[in-house]
Design a protein around this nucleic acid. Structure first.
Length: 271
DNA sequence: ATGGTCGGCAACCGA
């Protein structure tokens, strides 16, 4: 069975619902993981998603900030969410595809929105950066992620860290810029190692090829300057390491009208 | 070295 899973920081699902429709019509993912939905669950545009074929949903949203959601063509066996750093700011949701979706071996899907961390890369004077580092520490020790009850698991989302040298347009110039500082890169790598997660995107497009999923709104010529960062990620457990048949970064979405500053990433699993 | 732009939601906060 072939299942495609997309992840996209949509930066307001209500504002950009037409772009979401355009994306799913073009790529037809079975599962769509969104971040920064900025939408309370009761106001989530579920009817529009149902018309697009995504009749199953798991929502963890709030008014104004953050928020994650999983939309699916296939029914879930279960859904859950986890609180990190004792803050209920809607940064994680998980769903399991299993018997109800026709899968003999269940697939756990984790959708994350890691805190951006503010501008100042010093946790002593920037509480937002301290929160980001603590969030990554908590992901590292999270038993459910490290030794998942489901050996088949995929972790996607906006992790807000570009960990490798060629995940940013200039390694040297971003060493002091939040998203690429050594401490957060080390902490993200430690999360990955603790869960034995495989970096799917870099499996398809290894270093030293540049690979980005985000281009700032502040650049007047984002495509020409191409000062991007790889902030969005797709990780799988070793059991799925040889079952990822495709990976696409839908860069064209950055050029659509009123775009998100992030673009979708799609991975295809052969289960 | 600096400022540059978005979205939510109605003055700034978060990114």
């Amino acid at each position: 069975m072939r299942i495609s899973i997309a992840t996209w920081n949509i930066n307001s699902v209500r504002l950009r619902i037409d772009q979401v429709a355009r994306f799913v019509k073009a790529f037809r993912p079975d599962v769509l993981c969104l971040q920064e939905t900025k939408c309370p669950d009761q106001k989530f545009p579920l009817k529009r998603f149902a018309r697009l074929g995504y009749v199953h949903s798991a929502l963890n949203g709030q008014k104004g900030y953050h928020g994650v959601a999983v939309l699916s063509r296939l029914p879930f066996d279960q859904t859950s969410m986890r609180i990190f750093c004792e803050r209920s700011d809607c940064r994680h949701i998980a769903a399991v595809l299993g018997e109800r979706a026709g899968l003999r071996d269940p697939l756990a899907i984790h959708n994350f929105y890691v805190p951006a961390g503010g501008d100042e890369p010093d946790p002593r004077i920037n509480a937002k950066f301290a929160h980001k580092l603590a969030f990554l520490d908590e992901m590292r020790v999270c038993a459910e992620l490290a030794a998942a009850p489901h050996p088949r698991a995929i972790l996607v989302g906006d992790l807000n860290v570009a960990p490798l040298e060629h995940d940013v347009w200039s390694h040297k110039r971003l060493l002091d810029v939040v998203s690429h500082t050594p401490i957060e890169c080390e902490k993200l790598t430690a999360v990955q190692a603790a869960g034995s997660w495989i970096d799917v995107m870099r499996g398809f497009i290894p270093e030293p090829t540049k690979l980005y999923t985000w281009w700032s709104y502040r650049s007047p010529d984002w495509a020409g300057a191409d000062k991007g960062r790889r902030l969005d990620h797709v990780w799988v457990k070793p059991e799925l390491g040889d079952r990822v048949s495709a990976m696409t970064v839908a860069k064209q979405a950055r050029a659509w009208p009123r775009p998100s500053d992030h673009v979708p990433v799609v991975a295809t699993l052969e289960l």
